[in-house]
Amino acid sequence: MAQAELEQEQTETMTVRESIRQALREELEHDEDVYIIGEDVGAFGGVLEVTGNLYEEFGEERVRDTPIAEAGIIGAATGAAATGTRPVAELMFSDFTGVAMEQIMNQMAKMRYMFGGKTDMPVTVRTTEGGGMGAASQHSGTIHSWISHFPGLKAVAPGTAAAAKGLTKAAIRSDDPVFVFENKMIYEQQGEVPTDVEYTIPIGEAAVEREGEDVTVVGTQRLVGEALDVAESLSGDVSVEVIDPRSLYPLDTDTIVESVKKTGRMVVADESPLSYGTHAEIIARAQEEAFFSLDAPIQRVGTPDTHMPFSTPLEQEVLPGGEDVKDAIRRIT
């Protein structure tokens, strides 16, 4: 969250994991139609410990353990959302989305449209993405481009603790299906988080996390923090503006375009595979609206179209990070 916005709010320091849990707790308290379902979200507290003690606080009806059955979980959440309740489903790792994809693409995403707008679909899907912990190819994927690409779904991907809370709450309050993509490497990242229980971040609003003049870095998830570190390390040399889009669909094109018109240069840093995805979309929009302001080819930083390998040197080879962002900035400044 941009510093200026945060200064308007009463805040406390917490990790991304705690901020998501707080968002869930507040929404369970706010609306009794909200409940959580997923694998090991209950008594166990979540495999990445996000739901934590919510089971003890709210009971097994509202924090409900499921069988290991992603199509069933997502299908049930979809049917439930169409019939009067507001489920928050957890897909333990985003790689498991494939198991549930039929219900996501043909039911959840299409029902409102196919039915002529005559149903709401207030379902939230939380899932974890990203490499960096040696979890190998089936537990490290970054798949948010698929979901952002598919009509009828909204997708958010926070890069800070404040965004994690504000977006999770906005997702749960939305009458549309919203995927919340949590990068697992930033669960321990700390930040200032507003304490107001009514605090939400509108889906579709980016944040300028740092203002700069020479180059715009649009970074997502873990790469927001890494881009901010790079910006700091280059200060006095290159003035870097850092934008966290926060929402991938809908995307706040205006904030990105306005920045590029000012700086004339852009780097898009997102952990998803480089081809046919999030980077390409953001770049397409920038060139549509700011073509004549561009002074250099737009650069992209991401995973080089490989899966996430297991062994540490292999994983570090392909995992995009601050050095890659810095190299990209250097290529065009």
């Binding site: 199509a71 069933g72 299908g75 049930a76 979809t78 049917g79 439930a80 019939t83 009067g84 219900q103």
Partner: peptide
């Protein structure tokens, strides 16, 4: 989609049960 209805009905039953 053949077979897509039963998960939706299970979800509807979940709403019914929950409320």
């Amino acid at each position: 989609i053949v077979g897509a209805g039963p998960p939706l009905a299970t979800g509807a039953a979940l709403s019914i049960d929950y409320q």
